[in-house]
């Protein structure tokens, strides 16, 4: 008799569960059809870095090496150079700039310590997370890849923006396509 009872009880349990599962069908979908649909990232999301420039397009970085010192995985390589020319002709905003600025994305752990360390707001995290490459050497990104003026933003993410969500202590950039995606 107990076998019969077991079978009945188990069937009831399965049906109950099935009911709950099926009731999920008309509800809001949580999965995202990436890469056909963009993924939503939060405003503070730590993606690939951006090296910033000022209004006149001069690089903000003064090659102070603080980001390199703060980096827990030692993946920032900088070569500094003095540039005594007048502001209009200079590369950087100040008289010193980073001739070479490399980040090795094979090592970077996206911790944000470099951003926290930079006294000039010259480096921030962008939102790009699509960093896979076919060749490991390509993970070494140079200034050419990192400068905000040179980066091409991917269509595969959008930043969650909503009136109460916007908050930025040292993230001044905003990408386009900001719709209210707060779920």
């Amino acid at each position: 008799m107990s076998v019969v009872a077991d079978v009945i009880e188990s069937t009831v349990a399965i049906l109950k569960g099935m009911k709950r599962t099926l009731s999920e069908i008309p509800r809001h979908n949580w999965t995202v059809q990436y890469p056909d649909e963009p993924v939503t990232v939060q405003p503070r999301y730590r993606g690939q870095h951006l090296l910033h420039v000022d209004e006149a397009g001069k690089e903000k970085c003064v090659a102070c090496y603080l980001c390199a010192a703060a980096c827990p995985s030692d993946c920032i390589y900088i070569e500094a150079e003095d540039d005594a020319r007048p502001y209009a002709e200079r590369v950087g905003r100040d008289e010193r700039y980073a001739k070479v600025y490399n980040i090795d994305y094979g090592r970077c752990i996206f911790c944000g310590f470099c951003v926290e360390a930079c006294p000039k707001d010259a480096i921030t995290h962008g939102y790009n997370f699509e960093l896979s490459v076919y060749n490991r050497a390509d993970l070494l990104k140079t200034k050419d890849d990192l400068l905000i003026t040179k980066q091409v933003q991917s269509k595969n993410y959008r930043v969650a923006l909503s009136s109460e969500d916007v908050d930025s202590e040292f993230k001044k950039i905003r990408t386009k396509g900001g719709e209210k995606t707060d779920r």
């Binding site: 949580w30 911790c111 310590f113 969650a160």
Partner: peptide
């Protein structure tokens, strides 16, 4: 996922907030 979004909103990282 909801909690990770909250953690991401506060810290910028999902699995590695620091």
């Amino acid at each position: 996922e909801k909690i990770l979004n909250l953690i991401e909103a506060a810290s910028g990282g999902r699995m590695t907030p620091s």
